[in-house]
């Protein structure tokens, strides 16, 4: 008996190889980073000056609304698009797999390549503008790159891919008989969606929405490559990198990061407050 307990206790040593590096490389820096936001570069005295600087200097505090102005509308549109696509192809629709695959495909490429692709496609001489001009919708090329719209489009492509990749499985987990049942009881397609499908998937959709929004608040390479990082797409991370790599002011860089983290938490709190007001549970029937 004693030996049994002994071996069991010793077993927990097996946790160390993974925990130790994480404590050193993740937990310690996280804490140190937090402390650093209360210090001036090269000093250890505790001060609030970084935060005061952030919230009084437009160069810093503008990033909050610039980021949100870019990311929130994009995230909402992404949700509509991704939900629309995955809802449409749910079940056993022919070609559904191909559509899902193509929608999710940009996720494999990652943000840098998508940024380049947006430039190649939407630049003034790219396919988008030449087609629009040839059809006659536009008279002259519409500037869609190196500004707000460039970053917006790149975010949309990646965000739709991310949300769709999560929604496909969630939609499959809802028993299709529930929808059939509602329809036989006399519900139209729309009422079936409103009263049966949506209430069942709502909480999961909001979770994915929140995750995506949080991810996109940390947008960087897109803002730099297809956006205009000097003004319109000057997001949190752009400023943080500027502080860290150009000014070597890690303390300020961290302050920006912390403010970003808090913003993300607030967004999360808002979404989850909305989510709470509905059915949270499993929608798959047995068998």
């Amino acid at each position: 008996m004693n030996q049994e307990v002994f071996t069991r206790k010793r077993d927990y040593l097996l946790l160390l190889p993974s925990l130790l590096p994480l404590l050193l490389l993740f937990v310690y820096p996280l804490l140190k980073g937090f402390v650093m936001t209360f210090q001036e570069p090269g000093s250890t005295a505790v001060t609030l000056s970084n935060y005061i600087e952030f919230f009084t200097n437009a160069k810093y505090y503008d990033t909050i609304w610039r980021t949100l102005y870019l990311v929130v509308p994009a995230a909402i549109l992404e949700l509509f698009l991704a939900f629309g696509i995955t809802y449409f192809i749910r079940g056993k629709m022919k070609g559904g797999g191909l559509i899902a695959g193509l929608t999710i495909f940009p996720l494999t490429l990652g943000s840098i390549i998508i940024d380049m692709a947006v430039i190649a496609f939407f630049k003034p001489t790219g396919w988008f503008n030449t087609t629009m001009i040839n059809i006659g919708i536009l008279d002259e090329p519409f500037t869609l790159v190196y500004n707000y719209w460039g970053a917006f489009i790149a975010l949309i492509i990646l965000g739709v891919a991310f949300i769709a990749s999560n929604l496909v499985g969630m939609m499959d987990s809802i028993d299709p008989n529930l929808e059939k049942a509602a329809r036989t009881l006399g519900a139209s397609h729309w009422v079936t969606f409103k009263r049966v499908f949506w209430p069942l998937i709502r909480s999961n959709v909001l979770t994915v929405f929140a995750l995506n929004l949080i991810m996109q608040i940390g947008v960087y390479s897109t803002a730099v490559i297809v956006g205009n990082p000097a003004s319109e797409t000057r997001t949190f991370v752009v400023v943080a990198f500027e502080e860290a790599m150009r000014n070597f002011n890690y303390n300020m860089a961290n302050t920006v990061a912390i403010v970003m983290g808090v913003t993300q938490l607030l967004v999360l709190a808002i979404v989850f407050a909305i989510r709470k007001r509905g059915f949270v549970g499993s929608a798959s029937t047995f068998k």
Binding site: L15, S18, L22, L25, F26, P29, L30, K32, G33, M36, I214, I217, G218, F236, V237, A240, A244, Y250, A253, N254, A257, I258, M260, G261, Q264
Partner: peptide
């Protein structure tokens, strides 16, 4: 709790630990 902890590095924004790691 441990599982939650292991989830943190890829749910938290990487900037939060990346900057102090860089300075260290």
């Amino acid at each position: 709790a441990l599982l939650g902890f292991f989830q943190m590095p890829f749910t938290l924004p990487d900037l939060l630990y990346a900057i102090p790691v860089a300075s260290i």
